[in-house]
Simulated scan of single mutants.
Amino acid sequence: MNKKWMTGSLALALGLVSAGSGAMGAGADTGSTAIKTVAVSVPGKEGPATINNLTVKSIIPLVVHAKKLYTYASRSGNVYNPETFVYNGTNYRFLSSDLGTKQQLMNYIKRAYTHNAAAFYVQTQFLEYKGRMAQVNADVGNALQYDKATAIMVSKTATTAVFELSVPQPDGQGANEMVVVKLKKVNGYWRIDMSPDTLF
């Protein structure tokens, strides 16, 4: 496999770059089309976002992918010193330009979540202010180790599924957390049918 492609995919999977921003293709024009291909094809063309056979094994990469999307969005995207403002007495921060509009944010979240789950999340956890998306200036989420989780299928039909995950605590501290994940098949691929903030 092409090393540049692997590096670009790894950076994307770790949330170091945003797939939608074209950052992987920009500035890396070395004559190879591998990086450009990844940047163009990422929204739902490869990896955990294209799981169509949901099992106790395949759900884990999808949940890990979903958590990376949630973590990126909940940390305002790729800005380290976000622009802040006060609205109705609450301190907010703007999201980075790749998540800057409601449509960009929705499209990003829908890479692992259903439309309804993404819409609920965007509606309840973000503020559209002066044409830009913002969120309360605070840290959210948990440090559970979803990449080390095990899953049990609770129910599954052709279009819906429910799994129960046993997720280890950070550094093995305490008992595993039991997490219920609801999913729905959208255009042939499985998506999480819960708002990210309720799952993570």
Rank of each mutant, 00 (worst) to 15 (best):
T159Y: 10
K148I: 09
V63I: 04
D139I: 15
G27P: 12
Y146K: 05
K110I: 06
K148W: 10
A143K: 12
Q104I: 00
S74C: 07
T124R: 07
N107E: 07
T124M: 08
Y92D: 02
A143I: 02
S155N: 10
L14K: 07
K102A: 09
T124G: 01
A19R: 05
Q145R: 12
F85I: 10
F94V: 10
T84W: 06
A134H: 01
N116C: 00
A118M: 06
P43V: 02
K36F: 13
V136K: 15
V154H: 11
V122Q: 05
S21T: 14
Q135A: 14
I60F: 00
T124D: 00
N142C: 06
A151I: 06
N137A: 06
A118D: 00
Y129K: 15
V40L: 05
T114Q: 01
A119E: 06
Y80D: 14
Q103C: 01
A39L: 12
V40P: 04
A134G: 09
L95V: 09
I152K: 15
Y129C: 07
G20H: 10
Q135N: 11
L127I: 09
T160S: 14
G131K: 04
V42A: 15
A34H: 14
L99D: 05
L16W: 15
A26Q: 08
M24A: 06
N107D: 11
G31N: 06
A73S: 11
G25D: 13
Q103W: 00
N81S: 13
Y146Q: 02
K156V: 05
A143D: 15
S21E: 07
A118P: 11
A49R: 15
M133Y: 10
G44Q: 09
G20I: 02
M24R: 07
A39E: 14
G77S: 10
T50R: 08
G89W: 11
M24N: 06
L105P: 01
T30G: 15
L144G: 05
N53D: 07
A19W: 03
Q123M: 10
A112M: 03
T90S: 10
Q103H: 02
N88E: 12
A73T: 10
T101S: 12
T150A: 05
K68H: 07
A34P: 13
N78E: 01
R75T: 00
R111F: 03
